[in-house]
């Protein structure tokens, strides 16, 4: 095929990938950060004395929730400006796959990691003296529910930077895009599930008779539960690797 035409097609596919990454990827984090603000505002109404604490926790939680769309933005910018040469058709499919992977993961991860943050706001409004364990649990839960997102970012980077061979066939085109779909959609459930587990870990401490004693075992169980809930996304990562490296 004519090299100019190939380059145009590849750049168009990069644009599609970037659009999906940020467009779809912004839905979850946007909703999630709104939920955080909602529960912070509600908490301030219930317990005006904790306003300054709640404001701080809301901002910290929203900051952590904005990691997924930042990752999506990085991939989108790489796709739009970072790639100088677009020589082979397979690069276009890989770029579209990278966009789908990070976009879907950012959608789910933003939604999932906002759940512990909003629950932390509500919990601090009700039991302000336990602000320290709630904040710790929130941060750990948020960081861990973003593990599938890190897998998706890894697959996106691999898709973008994996050297393209000139004699790639239709099978490789499909494999590149499938790796992105597999990782992106594989991370949705794990992200939201881990967010739920972290959210209910905070509820567990709230309802315990001796919260200081409960926070150790609850945090440990939460870590294990999150790790197991992320097994499906690990399987998606394995399949993505197989698709990327063997075909």
């Amino acid at each position: 095929m004519d090299p100019v035409a190939v380059s145009l097609i590849v750049k168009a596919m990069y644009a599609l990938g970037a659009a999906f990454a940020v467009g779809f990827g912004a839905v979850g984090p946007g909703t999630g950060m709104g939920l955080n603000a909602a529960s912070a505002v509600e908490g301030m109404g219930r317990q005006p004395g904790t306003s300054s604490d709640l404001f701080r926790i809301m901002l910290i939680g929203q900051g952590a929730t904005s990691t997924p769309p930042t990752f999506a933005l990085v991939i989108a910018i790489l796709l739009l400006f970072g790639m100088g040469d677009a020589t082979y058709l397979v690069q276009g499919f890989a770029g579209l796959g990278a966009g789908i992977s990070i976009g879907a993961a950012s959608f789910a991860s933003g939604l999932g990691s906002s759940l512990p943050a909003s629950m932390a706001c509500e919990a601090i409004a009700r039991q302000p003296h336990l602000r320290r364990p709630f904040t710790t649990l929130m941060l750990v839960g948020q960081a861990l529910s973003q593990t599938p997102l890190i897998f998706a970012l890894l697959v996106s980077f691999l898709l973008i930077f994996l050297p393209a061979s000139p004699d790639a066939g239709i099978l490789q085109y499909v494999a590149r895009i499938s790796a992105g779909i597999c990782m992106g959609f594989g991370s949705i459930g794990s992200s939201i599930g881990s967010g739920l587990a972290a959210e209910l870990a905070i509820v567990g401490i709230r309802h315990h008779r001796e919260p200081e004693k409960a926070s150790g075992p609850i945090t440990r169980t939460m870590l294990l539960g999150l790790a197991v809930a992320q097994s499906p996304s690990v399987f998606a990562l394995v399949i993505s690797f197989v698709l990327l490296l063997t075909i």
Partner: peptide
């Protein structure tokens, strides 16, 4: 599947971190 998930979880996290650090440092 337990073996696959336990080993790929560690590998994916560490490898992912290392690659993200490399790429971001380059950017």
């Amino acid at each position: 599947a337990k073996v696959v998930s336990i080993s790929f979880r560690l590998f994916g996290n560490i490898m992912g971190g290392a690659i993200i650090i490399t790429v971001v440092s380059w950017m």
